[in-house]
Nucleic acid binder design. Structure first.
Lengths: 192, 192
DNA sequence: TATGATCGACCTACTAGTAGGAAGGCACAG
DNA sequence: CTGTGCCTTCCTACTAGTAGGTCGATCATA
């Protein structure tokens, strides 16, 4: 039993994931959930505001999910792997075949300011989380880091987002798995 | 002295790089080069056709540039580094701050078929080139590959495109350099 | 005199956003 | 218990502007 506002955000999110900020309209949402355009404007006066709220929600959900991962798994290696498993599952079953913020990051130069700043906030949050996990893993001798944890985190994040792009370009969900698994293999100490 | 058609493609390319397929219109091009909308339709009847030609041109230019790199530098390590230097320069001076096809790859599900297939062709071409360079480098003991050359090529390509995304998200061109340099460092044998 | 390039004028469909009102729920005064 | 007023939600109907695209005329040049 989700509210109308939530339904609007859900549909908008799947449309953004499919084609970005400029690839959806209020009419699209209207058609998808059987509500008039004007009603959407009642909940979200402008498109920029709608997407800003959407990205905020997305970041909060991600933050909660990542924190839950840290509590569920003791080992940083398992925490990292289950983060990647999440995306592998999403991409394979096409439920959320792309990161909303990765999508929007490409459009940064043309995004409304209130959206762009929130996309940046997501990237900061994810980079922080990855760096913390990598650092903890390095201290436990689970990972061998060639660079500072923050830089290794940036590399990993770039790999994940780049792999999403490649999976789309080649229309091959398994390619995402291949790329990110090979990437973490380079971090694990038992290798080499 | 470039033809009108070339000027149209140049402007369209910079607009796509800024915001993707849906973020530019014939009117934008019209304003930018001082020609009427109808005249653009004379050269490129439809938007899909315009972008298809644009991506073809982009791939051909890239193919030529990469081949030139292989002739200019004997060492695969230098070939690879100068490919990355190209993007580092582009991103730092903001001349071509994003790969056209990486941009379009994100929009694949909503792209006209004739555009999508050409984006895929670019990805295939680049993956082939990178795999060849990596394999040659491995045979000369310049690189140590943990995976098959094709898979290492995919990882590298994902890193490059993901790093572009991150540089945009953080509004920090240097981040691109940090990520891709750290990534090739993992390939070079003198490390570790 | 044919050809390619450009143009103004136009078209239909769609864009984000607005105005104003109808229906329902809820609180409170009588 | 009823009436009144308010608030939220959703609606129809509308706006100005933009989207991609068409048509026929004009103009230069070969």
């Amino acid at each position: 039993m989700s509210s109308t506002a939530d339904k609007i955000l859900d549909v908008a999110q799947s449309l953004i994931v499919a084609g970005g900020y400029n690839a959806f309209s209020y009419a699209d949402i209207s058609d998808a959930i059987g509500i008039r355009k004007a009603s959407i404007h009642h909940h979200f006066p402008t498109k920029a505001e709608l997407v800003a709220v959407l990205v905020d929600r997305y970041r909060q959900q991600a933050e909660l999910g990542l924190k839950a991962l840290q509590e569920q798994f003791a080992s940083p290696a398992d925490q990292l792997q289950s983060y990647l498993n999440f995306w592998q599952t999403c991409i394979r079953d096409a439920s959320l075949p792309f990161c909303v913020c990765a999508m929007l990051a490409g459009e940064m130069p043309m995004l409304p300011a209130e959206v762009a700043s929130r996309v940046q906030a997501y990237f900061h949050m994810l980079a922080r989380w990855l760096a913390a996990v990598l650092q903890a893993g390095a201290e436990q001798r689970l990972f061998r880091l060639d660079e500072r944890p923050e830089d290794e985190a940036q590399m990993l994040m770039a790999s994940v987002h780049g792999a999403m792009l490649s999976a789309r370009a080649f229309n091959d969900p398994d390619l995402f798995v291949t790329i990110v698994n090979a990437q973490i293999a380079k971090l694990l100490v038992e290798d080499r």
